[in-house]
Simulated scan of single mutants.
Amino acid sequence: MTTDDTIPADPELRRFVELSMPLTGFATYDLYGTGMAQLYLDTARRQLGAGHLTAFLDVWQQALGTPGGPQSLSPLDREIARALTYLWYTGGWPRLAPAAHAALRREVPNTETVASPGSYPEGLVWRSFAGHPSGAKPPGFGTWALKPPDLPTEQEIREELQAAAEDPSVQTACAPAAYPAQVTSGSVPAHLLPGPRAFRALAPSAVPAAAPPPDAEPEEASE
């Protein structure tokens, strides 16, 4: 839902997703692809308070431009960063460290909660090792016979994120103007689609059935 043809309904949503990219190690395209971005933003606001979340995003954005990076964060901000990463990876909000919860002065219970029933299968943890959640989103036909891809190194993740940030097709897909637009079939490059690629090429229903055995030649009548 948008307020006009170009601006997302929540102006902080895009910033939240962009600053979640270095937290999770996934490109913004993948984060939007979970369909959970707005829900996670609302969950973080409810758990932290809108003011505390905005303050953390400001501090985190500044930290990304310093040599120290995450090491320059305060213990409270590190705990918030951990909680947001946990939320993206598992679809649930974790129990905060007691000191952090007390510093936030929030009245919500300090317990682990699931953001929504749909957030569990969309957790990034499954994509991180090319797996799938138990009881949901099963892989395609024949994928059990394929060896999972090797896990990327930290340097490879950094290079992939940098390449995604500079890819014009990613920038177009993540631009505010793309929100209300209808995505046409085949307009998104295959390498930008989320999830393992092995089962995207052919749907199980499209797999041809095994050919029946050829008819046996009739036996010649014995004289």
Score class of each variant (00 low, 15 high):
residue 8 P to M: 11
residue 10 D to A: 01
residue 15 R to N: 11
residue 15 R to Y: 10
residue 17 V to S: 11
residue 26 F to V: 08
residue 26 F to Q: 06
residue 28 T to D: 00
residue 30 D to P: 06
residue 35 G to A: 02
residue 36 M to Y: 00
residue 37 A to T: 08
residue 42 D to V: 10
residue 43 T to I: 02
residue 54 T to A: 04
residue 55 A to M: 14
residue 57 L to Q: 01
residue 63 A to H: 10
residue 69 G to L: 06
residue 87 L to N: 09
residue 95 R to Q: 11
residue 97 A to Y: 14
residue 99 A to Y: 01
residue 102 A to L: 12
residue 104 L to C: 08
residue 105 R to Q: 10
residue 110 N to T: 05
residue 113 T to N: 03
residue 113 T to Q: 14
residue 113 T to C: 10
residue 119 S to I: 02
residue 124 L to E: 12
residue 126 W to T: 11
residue 136 A to G: 10
residue 137 K to M: 13
residue 137 K to S: 13
residue 138 P to K: 09
residue 144 W to R: 14
residue 147 K to M: 15
residue 150 D to S: 14
residue 153 T to P: 07
residue 161 L to F: 00
residue 172 T to Q: 12
residue 172 T to Y: 05
residue 176 P to N: 07
residue 180 P to L: 11
residue 180 P to N: 07
residue 183 V to I: 15
residue 188 V to L: 02
residue 188 V to Y: 01
residue 190 A to C: 12
residue 191 H to L: 13
residue 193 L to P: 11
residue 194 P to V: 07
residue 199 F to A: 11
residue 203 A to V: 02
residue 204 P to L: 14
residue 208 P to Q: 08
residue 209 A to T: 09
residue 211 A to R: 08
residue 214 P to C: 09
residue 217 E to I: 02
residue 217 E to M: 07
residue 218 P to Q: 01
residue 219 E to C: 00
residue 222 S to N: 04
